[in-house]
Design a binder for these strands. Structure first.
Length: 573
DNA sequence: GCCGTTTTCGGCCCGACTGTTTTCAGTCG
């Protein structure tokens, strides 16, 4: 289901592709791309903002013209300019730009010289060796295009952060064994803790005679050397993930780390600031003319343009630069702020460990409390609990709490929200719990109106406390179900309910934009791992990363509270 | 198409690597 914003962003981005192909003004192209990004990443619906008469041109990168175009799309579903451009330039051409090594210029040449419009056309031309004769193309380029077509067919999705970490760790260890190497850091979206990464950007500082670049190329997991230079090389690993290695002298470490951490949009914005101060920022430092004025640390780089250090998770050019300039950066929540986990499972349902094992593991993490929230009966595949079994678990928790010292197990349940919005366990047993975690586990395909009404009705139950994984998405696997989160968040706020930020790296649900919206609304979130085993409790750090990307501070998070403060917050009136 | 402590025009980040060229355009990040 395309939400309004996603649809608008899609149209802008298609328009940008086509204008680029036509050789249009690159800055105009960028303007549409920026707008697509702003709208697509915005947590509030453009339609709703328009309804409330809000001025869209106050959004970053949206001026009078684009605000008008957004209105056109909201009101008619169409962008006339896009329709017009699509009539003169085949839409399929933008698909061709997704092939590595093919940009707008080459795609245009292929179209004009050989009439190539589709992947199939291109495949045929490559097989017939027609491409190599074109000016600017040669046999090697033709070869690369052939490989690019094959790779595109394998449609490489972005890699989940947890998977990227597993791939990066042994590679970093391998690089650290090179001679003359000092720092090895994974930068890029990995360092910004994005939920998925497109590739790995690894930064190394090394002495001039270091063998790190040769060693990188020899890495056992490497499948192909994409490019190789003195300061920069790129590998494709067997996993399909691409890795960029950049080597700089130690004096440039901060500037390089800053540069390769991105995001691109953030970097561009800060470089503009630098320009105004007659400075130039590149990966080797900050320069005034030929003189290096900063670069050893990131903090120095920021200071050179008059800013305090901005944490990597915020570097998306989504207002962090302005906030930093005004001394309004948030003090982001940290893993150490977390005092407990509010959503986990045991072997009573689909978890792997017992109550006591889960409790001990949480204690080992330094937690003060852990909520046991096994599934309710409707989730039969997980052997969900009925009233009787839940009451038995409640008694078992009471007994165990008698034995635990300085640590408390909280009584909870992950209660299914049924299709009609009722809860899957009777109030008589829900009232015996410390709180509930409620969730949608089936009927994902209801209309936006009905899905929203379903959850709103569930919240009317006085025993509803926290809405678990609020959109139900599984990254790269299942799209979020269609629900009006703005309305849900407002309602939760009014009723003393809360939403969960599910920290599981397959879910990361809420996303960063919605976390930020929750903060704006003053709605607190629970960051919970949904652990199904003792080791899963350590997934908390992914949730923290997401929370930080969403500008959340410790105060925004339920489980940074002491047990008493938490219980007070969870009490509904 | 956006944007403004060098404001309503004239800018718009910056560098590395590849392949096809013979000095550089195209692509990428």
């Amino acid at each position: 289901m395309a939400g309004h914003n996603r649809d608008i962003a899609e149209q802008f981005s298609r328009l940008a592709d086509l204008l680029e192909l036509e050789g249009g003004n690159p800055f105009r192209v960028r303007a549409y791309r920026n707008a697509a990004r702003t709208v697509g990443g915005h947590s509030r619906d453009m339609a709703e903002m328009l309804e409330q008469d809000e001025d869209l041109s106050r959004l970053p990168g949206i001026g009078k013209d684009l605000a008008g175009k957004i209105r056109q799309i909201v009101e008619t579903g169409h962008l006339p300019l896009l329709d017009k451009v699509e009539q003169r330039t085949p839409v399929a051409l933008s698909q061709l730009m997704r092939i590595e090594g093919l940009g707008p210029k080459r795609v245009k040449t292929l179209y004009e010289a050989l009439g190539i419009q589709s992947l199939d056309d291109l495949k045929q031309a490559v097989d017939a060796q027609q491409v190599r004769g074109l000016s600017g193309f040669g046999a090697r380029t033709e070869d690369k295009i052939r490989q690019g077509i094959e790779r595109l067919a394998g449609s490489a999705a972005r890699t989940k952060l947890i998977h990227a970490e597993q791939i990066a760790a042994p590679l970093v260890a391998w690089l650290k064994e090179s001679t003359g190497v000092k720092d090895v850091e994974v930068a890029g979206s990995f360092r910004r803790r994005k939920e998925t990464v497109g590739d790995l950007d690894i930064l190394v500082t090394a002495s001039r005679n270091s063998d790190v670049m040769q060693r990188f190329i020899r890495y056992g997991e490497a499948e192909e050397t994409v490019s190789q230079g003195k300061t920069r090389s790129t590998l494709r690993l067997r996993s399909g993930l691409q890795v960029d290695l950049r080597v700089v002298p130690q004096v440039a470490f901060g500037a390089a780390l800053y540069y390769f951490t991105g995001s691109k949009e953030h970097n561009i914005a800060v470089r503009k600031l630098a320009q105004k101060k007659k400075l130039k920022i590149n990966e080797y430092g900050v320069f005034r003319g030929d003189e290096r004025v900063a670069g050893r640390t990131e903090k120095e780089v920021f200071a050179s343009v008059g800013l305090p250090f901005i944490p990597p998770e915020l570097r998306e050019n989504q207002g962090e630069i302005e906030a930093a300039a005004n001394g309004k950066l948030p003090e982001l929540v940290e893993l150490d702020d977390i005092r407990g986990d509010l959503h986990c499972h045991t072997n009573a349902t689909d978890g792997h460990h017992s109550l006591e094992q889960m409790a001990r593991a949480a204690q080992d993490l330094g937690y003060e409390y852990l909520a046991i929230s096994d599934h309710s009966r409707h989730v039969s595949v997980a052997h969900g609990l009925d009233s009787k079994r839940l009451e038995a678990q409640i008694a078992a928790i009471d007994r165990l709490n008698g034995k635990l010292d300085g640590f408390v197990l909280l009584k909870s349940a992950e209660v299914d929200i049924l299709e009609d919005g009722s809860l899957d366990l009777p109030d008589a047993v829900l009232k015996q719990l410390d709180f509930t975690v409620c969730a949608v586990h089936y009927k994902f395909d209801l209309s936006r109106e009905r899905q929203t009404a379903r959850v709103l009705r569930a919240m009317d139950n006085p025993y509803f406390n926290i809405l678990a994984h609020p959109t139900g998405r599984l990254i790269n696997e299942r799209a979020p179900y269609d629900i009006d989160l703005e309305q849900i968040m407002q309602a939760a706020s009014e009723r003393g309910c809360f939403l969960e930020l599910n920290a599981h790296p397959e879910r990361m649900d809420l996303d960063d934009a919605h976390c930020r919206r929750a903060h704006e609304l003053g709605l607190k979130l629970a960051i919970s791992t949904d652990a199904h085993s003792t080791s899963d409790l350590e997934l908390m750090r992914y949730g923290i990363g997401q929370a930080r990307r969403g500008w959340l501070q410790a105060d925004d998070v339920l489980n940074t509270r002491s047990l008493n403060a938490l219980k007070k917050l969870l009490r509904r009136n």
